[in-house]
Write a protein that binds this DNA or RNA. Structure first.
Length: 766
DNA sequence: GAGCACTGC
């Protein structure tokens, strides 16, 4: 982009001669006012774009450029991503870029690909001339928002007009005006469910594809197929270097031609990597020792230590502080002051902000400088960047979700990280200047023991939700769907089985009318089912609240030094019949006390989580209205609680446990797992039958968020699942058989409460 | 008598 000779040759190469005849006649005065004059969609050249960028008039708003624009433009010209893409001398590259339907693009951090490439595509696609949009997906909401803001500034337009973003709870776009849209991958997947050909888009860019979120993986499968049907649609997969070949092969036109690759150099500083000589038996202890070694012996610069969870992090912070104080006491001049800052997602935002505090200053003008130590979960690996980090300590572990389809349980396990993840961690040391990374494992283990990539989420998750989405997207054969990485068939079977029991899919795997509505709710299928049937129990207002509460993080706070007070506050809000009812009670009290800003805090509740629940409730309420799911409540509070517990059964009948013996043990129905009630459970007794929201595997297996239910409800509202003729033998079956016999003996009476006719109707839909 | 890696709709 530096000299005009190159630009001319570029132009000559990139526009075939026959195309020139199609160009509108050039007119001196018009071109002065029309920066895009002569631009032909997908035939636009780098020099043309550069001319438009340097033009006095904004190509899209037709307004004169602001001084701010010029300033930003100069900085952009220094980015590793050039408007020519790839090597500036290779003019063929730009033709490939615009003429290939699917391309893969790699660029390390700092290359500017996320901000620049979508703009380049907007200039070459000219979506605004065809009423189309260019979309660029991000795995996280904050990224979609902040990148859109940055790009709007770069293009000298107002955010939400030509450039916008779309995330859950916020659509910052203007139909008819917005032509460049950043959005979360989940949001694009939602759109695809109602418009499978994604006709609004001329180009779709999947950014951060290497993160392999569930939504990005499904989108890759959909887009690969869609490309065959929509020859006008262009697809760009943007990823980190390590994964590029996999995507190239996946998106290749035939099994042995790969999709073309475009590379953008990164702009980071070198990071020197050190390994231990021997494996470390206790990684937390080794990590603390390493942090203190850095503090004593290394040049100034902040430290980032990766650990696996809240407890480990808080504990390490305490120990680091203690040991650093010891060093100062022994010899005040040997080391500078140190602050240690914990970082994990459940910290309130205000405390998360502390990671941006400057390091403490030296105790005396010529004393050793201070140092900031950030001890973080994986949140600092992708979601948050901290400038000023020079040293990274990487013990090589993180908590990862694993799914066991046999017992249908998702759990978190501390596991070794992948090489890709280790590289990402190391890179965090080189953002501002050359850095060092201390890996607390041997080089041999790094080479031979660590997996190349972290397993994509699709291989580690319960896919009930995803399968419902895929069926709604019209995917007929889930096993044959072209996944980048195919999930275990058993995981798909489990998901299909659940959806069939919930009556979202019929026995042939087709979507039922109920399933069609369920798919519209941004919820797990169990929750969606329970919400949709709740009007039949006259308690949909309450089930809506409970569903919202189950969709947000834990609302209970329990500070280490105020556990008693927190437990006492919780006891006051607890409903003894079940934790679900307690959640309802908490939410209602929160709403009633909204005038009191301190209410949440004085009751040891998370104001943030409660506000989120309110937000989710609103969104779900709108979806209910759209599909005419009535909002109703029974007035009599006793009957209401009973109705709520019955409605819960309609969604969670596969998550039932039966008391076994008198030691407080429960057996999960059908799977026969021995579980205990989680200590946070608020039940005042140990009922014979409970439904639970979660199975957690920590010091032992627990069920969490538990409500007392009656066995006759199970037989009545989930008759197919509880069909005793096909039920596994055991104490659970015998207990249910006794209930069934008793019910048969009482023939003529339908249940002992509520409206029999209504229940019969429900029985049909399982 | 314990916890909540991180996202997303």
């Amino acid at each position: 982009m530096s000299n005009s000779v190159k630009e001319n040759s570029y132009l000559a190469h990139s526009i075939p001669n026959e195309r020139r005849h199609n160009m509108p006649p050039t007119n001196g005065s018009a071109s002065a006012k029309e920066p895009l004059l002569g631009f032909l969609p997908r035939k636009v050249t780098g020099p043309q774009v550069r001319k438009a960028l340097d033009h006095d008039i904004n190509a899209f708003t037709k307004l004169p450029h602001t001084p701010q624009y010029r300033k930003i433009l100069e900085a952009r010209k220094k980015l590793p991503v050039r408007w020519s893409v790839g090597d500036t001398n290779a003019s063929h590259e730009i033709i490939q870029f615009t003429s290939n339907q699917i391309i893969v693009m790699v660029g390390e951090t700092g290359s500017g690909k996320t901000t620049q490439i979508p703009q380049f595509v907007a200039y070459t696609d000219l979506p605004h001339t065809k009423g189309k949009l260019v979309a660029c997906t991000q795995p996280r909401r904050v990224a979609a928002m902040s990148v859109a803001k940055r790009v709007a500034d770069e293009m000298d337009v107002e955010l939400g007009r030509q450039v916008g973003y779309s995330i859950r709870f916020e659509d910052m776009t203007e139909p008819g005006t917005t032509f460049l849209k950043y959005m979360t991958d989940g949001m694009l997947l939602r759109e695809a469910m109602n418009d499978p050909s994604l006709d609004r888009y001329s180009t779709i860019i999947l950014d951060e594809a290497h993160e392999r979120t569930l939504a990005t993986d499904i989108l890759m499968g959909l887009l690969k197929d869609l490309a065959k049907r929509r020859s006008d649609l262009k697809i760009i997969i943007m990823s980190a270097t390590l994964d590029a070949l996999k995507f190239q092969k996946y998106f290749g036109l035939t099994s042995d031609t790969a999709a073309p690759l475009f590379k953008v150099p990164g702009r980071t500083h070198p990071v020197e990597v050190f390994y231990t000589q021997e494996p470390e038996p206790d990684y937390v202890e080794a990590a603390i020792r390493t942090v203190l070694m850095i503090h004593r012996a290394e040049d100034p610069g902040d430290v980032l230590l990766f650990l696996t969870g809240e407890e480990e992090i808080e504990d390490a912070c305490r120990k680091i502080k203690l040991e650093a104080d010891d060093l100062v006491n022994q010899d005040p001049d040997s080391v500078g002051p140190l602050i240690c800052i914990p970082l994990y997602s459940s910290l309130p935002p205000q405390q998360q902000q502390r990671i941006f505090d400057p390091p403490p200053s030296a105790r005396s003008p010529d004393g050793p400088p201070g140092r900031k130590i950030v001890v973080s979960t994986n949140i600092a690996e992708t979601s948050l960047t901290i400038d000023g980090i020079v040293y990274v300590v990487d013990p090589g572990f993180s908590k990862q979700k694993v799914y066991n389809p046999r017992i249908r349980v998702e759990s978190l396990l501390v596991s070794p990280i992948s090489k890709a993840s280790a590289q990402q961690r190391a890179g965090r040391a080189g953002r501002t200047r050359p850095g060092k990374c201390f890996r607390l494992y041997t080089e041999k283990d790094f080479m031979s023991e660590l997996e190349e990539q972290t397993h994509p989420e699709i291989l580690r998750s319960n896919l009930a939700n995803t399968v419902l989405e895929l069926v709604k997207l019209g995917i007929k054969d889930l096993v044959k769907f072209d996944y980048v990485d195919a999930p275990a068939p058993e995981t798909l079977m489990r998901a299909l089985e659940l959806l069939n029991y919930l009556a979202a899919l019929d026995d042939d795997g087709n979507l039922t009318p109920l399933g069609t509505i369920m798919a519209e709710f941004p919820l797990d299928p169990q929750l969606a089912k329970m919400l949709i049937v709740s009007p039949e129990f006259k308690c949909s207002n309450e089930i809506l609240t409970i569903t919202a509460m189950l969709s947000v993080p834990n609302v209970w706070l329990r500070p280490n030094n105020q556990r008693k007070e927190a437990d006492a506050a919780k006891a006051l809000l607890t409903v003894p019949d079940g934790d679900h009812l307690t959640m309802l009670n908490v939410y209602n009290n929160y709403i009633q006390n909204k005038y009191d800003k301190n209410w949440a805090w004085t009751n040891y509740l998370s104001a943030r989580a409660l506000a989120q629940a309110e937000n989710v409730r609103d969104q779900l309420k709108r979806t209910m209205e759209r599909f005419e799911v009535e909002l109703v409540s029974i007035v009599d509070p006793n009957k209401l609680y009973l109705a709520v517990r019955q409605a819960l059964v309609c969604g969670f009948f596969m998550q039932v446990a039966h008391k076994e013996g008198d030691k407080g043990n429960y057996l999960t129905v059908k799977d026969n797992q021995v579980v205990g009630l989680h200590p946070s459970c608020g039940l005042d007794a140990q009922p014979d039958w409970v439904i639970f929201n979660e199975f957690v595997l920590t010091t032992r297996p627990y069920i969490r968020t538990v409500t007392d239910v009656r066995p006759e409800w199970l037989l009545e509202f989930a008759s197919v699942y509880f069909d005793l003729s096909s039920f596994p033998d055991g104490e659970t079956k015998r207990a249910l058989q006794r209930v069934a016999n008793k019910r048969a003996g009482k023939s003529g009476r339908v249940g002992d409460d509520g409206d029999g006719a209504k229940k019969k109707k429900l029985k049909k839909s399982k």
